[in-house]
Design a protein around this nucleic acid. Structure first.
Lengths: 149, 149
DNA sequence: TGTTGACTTCGAGTGCACTCCAGCTCCTAC
DNA sequence: GTAGGAGCTGGAGTGCACTCGAAGTCAACA
């Protein structure tokens, strides 16, 4: 064994994009099992740890509440018998995500329309961008918003 | 004039999906200009007010911070001269939204893959769903996550 | 040998976006 | 005329997910 196994918390942070503070926090609340310690009681993150952190990050970035993530982690620790529950949890999450994506797509269209309307108001030599280059996906939406007076 | 103009806060809430509490809160922090009052000092929401509330909702649901919404509102109140700034603000927001959509799409693929992997572990008579019906968009992703030990 | 600097723990603090409460006013119906 | 209910205000409280601080430890290096 040439070097100490695993990487430091700062390296783990750099490699996952998760702040060191947050890595400790996740461990504290049980999202991460106690990370093995090296000399001086310092955390040494293995590749598995990093993979798990990345998976947690993916769940968080898709707006899964910490509470649900904890439930998922608990199920995973409980062994293979919980695979059906885990699948159910992920399926539910995926459905919510698909719905959210639909909503966001819709809103994106509305925002694009709104921008177009505003640009119609600008003088022809608009300072921001000369014209709308292939306005990608404008969902038809009335946009009957007034003004904040 | 047969009936009092505008609708009550509860009706406004029902018609926009925004809780009455939140409507008052938005007004308090200046996102909504003071809504005209009817007899007894009660709010009467006009169609314009509702339209504006819906627009605010669309911005919030696409994760625009309240702070930015306030800035947008301030610009709108400041008159037509601020149209370029408003366009810039909306453009920036749209860009962020597009990026977020990309990320979410990517994560959706990863979650779908994960579900598929889990289902591969299940006995053939899986209780949740017999098979994956046309697994829509699975982005290739390693998913080298370990387990939480 | 001292100093630097990255790490440790635990508790407290932060920022955001609501959400609720107390105590009051007002209108309507009985 | 009084009971009920919707609405009013200002301020306090909540929940979430971090984020930070203080005080201490440890290893490596000049």
């Amino acid at each position: 064994m040439s070097t100490i196994e695993g990487c430091s918390i700062e390296q783990a942070s750099a490699r996952t994009g998760v702040p060191a503070h947050t890595l400790r926090y996740y461990e504290r609340i049980g999202l991460l099992a106690p990370v093995p310690r090296g000399p001086g009681g310092r955390r040494r993150y293995t590749e598995d740890d990093l993979g798990w952190v990345r998976f947690l990050t993916l769940l968080r970035q898709t707006d899964m509440p910490i509470r649900d993530m904890q439930r998922f982690v608990d199920l995973t620790r409980a062994g293979d018998a919980t695979v059906p529950q885990r699948v159910a949890l992920l399926r539910a999450h995926r459905e919510a995500l698909v719905e959210r994506l639909d909503l966001l797509q819709h809103h994106l269209g509305a925002i694009t329309t709104k921008i177009d309307v505003y640009e119609g108001l600008l003088p022809p030599d608009a300072c921001v961008e000369p014209s709308t280059p292939a306005a990608d996906d404008r969902t038809a939406l009335a946009l009957t918003d007034g003004s904040p007076r």
